[in-house]
Design a protein around this nucleic acid. Structure first.
Lengths: 305, 305
DNA sequence: AGAGGTTACGGGCAGCGTAAGGATC
DNA sequence: GATCCTTACGCTGCCCGTAACCTCT
């Protein structure tokens, strides 16, 4: 009789179209996956996966593909796995929910309310282990779509059809500088801004692209943008008086309080950035959805709506 | 993570309200059941079954009873088990359906079309083992309601709310006798019948009760009924000329063909008996239902509608 | 005292990981 | 030859069965 573990293995092989990838996803070895699939096929007396290259599959298809029977099984497997997670929470309560949830977080969130989120998540789901990866949004997005993350707090919705998004929080950006930095009179004009080094997110990211477009003129000089993937580094450079930074004030609330940074008023209003909690839809997504909802609460409580 | 085996064990404990009975039902030992339930309760961090006597339960309640959480789990368990059996047949086809089905059969059926049924069932579900018990209807009914049979071919529908019934076949009863037996002129009158030993089903069964009522008069003698739980014995006694039997002619088709028995016309028409395929409703009932349907087909093909 | 559930302990086997073997590009 | 799945094999750990124990009526 097929058990849930076999169905879970089968599900991930079909989902990821690879035995190896499924093995990694499930923290096991590739032969173990092979064996389970073989056992399933033998128990059901049916071939479930068409292996490898173009032996049978049409040219475009990469990796293993489910057969017609495999697709049927996939549907059942998904339903049963979903039912199991639903059951565990319905009967045992949040405390019974276990396992590892891989969470990707954009650095901006780390500097605002991530700690509070982790704390509340642990209080609610004490048996869940959070594996946290901090990275830039585009890397998080890539990890999300290839299922190496279960949930991510990143910039903007992820358009992928099997990724769900929940609006999390929006941060106005503002110009910030060290009080030691000599600046033109405020509000700083656009042309004056063009003379200053502007320290902000990396060039290829959405807010920087918008900022650059707003600053750039046909005739004047190009803005001097210093991009950094590390928000901490941006803050460090700003504290050191290297230039004016464009960041969410919320990230440097403490520095402003201390007086080591100050908000610089300017003619130009920098763009806003908005974050979502995003997870890939699937039978195991119940926990991710719950934590996404929790994140919305935490972000709201923190005042970053 | 709870697996399907644990849910199956839990289901049967809850259903049968006993660890021991569940152990028997699942062909395992009682400690194994204890352990699985304990593991389940520990995994979910919740008490699922209220053990034993009147410690907590009100006086009337016998055996173990599910707690509120247990009832919730029971619902999920039922859905998941049902989904599994549905999945196995949908993906693997009938050949993938395995296990043991305990079938109870009334003797009348044995003497007509049981062999054909077994043959066709085996052809359709080669991996299924049929455990067949032949017994009288009322014993079969009792076994059915306490779940020691999965399916039974017996007389009349079983009124229990969680037993499903499918009409199988109806047999007219007739008077049969050895040609050597000296009989009154035909059609035999009711009063003449009262003088003869009538060999038939046991006293407490439906057809005999009806027959007895039809024969009995307020003033005349009581009918001389020879009841036997064994149909083969009834036939044997009839062949030996002990009396007239009331049985379905279909059962003695061969003897009539050979001339060792003959149908006796009488003033009185004996009752009809009707059979149903009956099974207890539950998550594992898919196979029973299929076999019940097959039995209807076989009975119809055999001409006993 | 007997029925029924729990605890304790030993053994068998499923399933995992390591390592070597094939197939396909 | 590189990549990916399969086969072979030894081992661990889970789960089952036996048996002794406990607790209620």
């Amino acid at each position: 009789m097929p058990d849930l573990r076999s169905l879970e293995v089968f599900f991930w092989v079909a989902q990821l179209r690879s035995f190896r990838a499924a093995a990694e996803r499930l923290n096991t070895t590739q032969p173990a996956v092979s064996q389970r699939i073989a056992a399933l096929e033998s128990e059901l007396g049916v071939r479930l996966l068409e292996r490898a290259g173009r032996a049978v599959a049409p040219a475009g298809a990469k990796g293993v593909l489910p057969t017609a029977q495999g697709r049927r099984l996939l549907d059942y497997a998904e339903r049963m796995l979903r039912l199991r997670t639903e059951m565990i929470e319905a009967v045992g309560g949040p405390g019974a929910v276990g396992g590892v949830l891989r969470l990707g977080v954009a650095e901006t969130i780390v500097h605002t309310w991530l700690a509070r989120f982790v704390e509340r998540a642990h209080a609610l789901y004490p048996a869940v282990t959070l594996d946290i990866d901090v990275d830039v949004t585009h890397a998080l997005r890539a990890s999300l779509v290839n299922h190496s993350l279960d949930l991510a707090f990143l910039m903007g919705p992820v358009p992928d059809p099997d990724v769900a998004n929940l609006a999390l929080c929006r941060y106005p950006l503002a110009f910030a500088a060290s009080p030691r930095l000599v600046l033109p009179p405020e509000p700083v004009s656009r042309s004056a801004l063009l003379t200053l080094p502007i320290i902000t997110y990396p060039r290829s990211t959405a807010p920087t692209i918008q900022l650059s477009a707003a600053l750039r003129t046909t005739d004047g000089p190009a803005p001097r943008l210093f991009g950094s993937a590390s928000l901490a580094t941006i803050v460090r450079m700003t504290l050191d008086g290297i230039g004016v930074s464009v960041i969410p004030p919320a990230v440097v609330a403490r520095e402003i309080e201390e007086g080591s940074l100050r908000i610089v008023r300017a003619e130009l209003t920098p763009p806003e950035i908005s974050f979502t909690a995003s997870w890939s839809i699937g039978p195991g997504d119940a926990l991710a959805r719950r934590l996404a909802e929790l994140a919305v609460t935490v972000a709201t409580d923190a005042g970053h709506r």
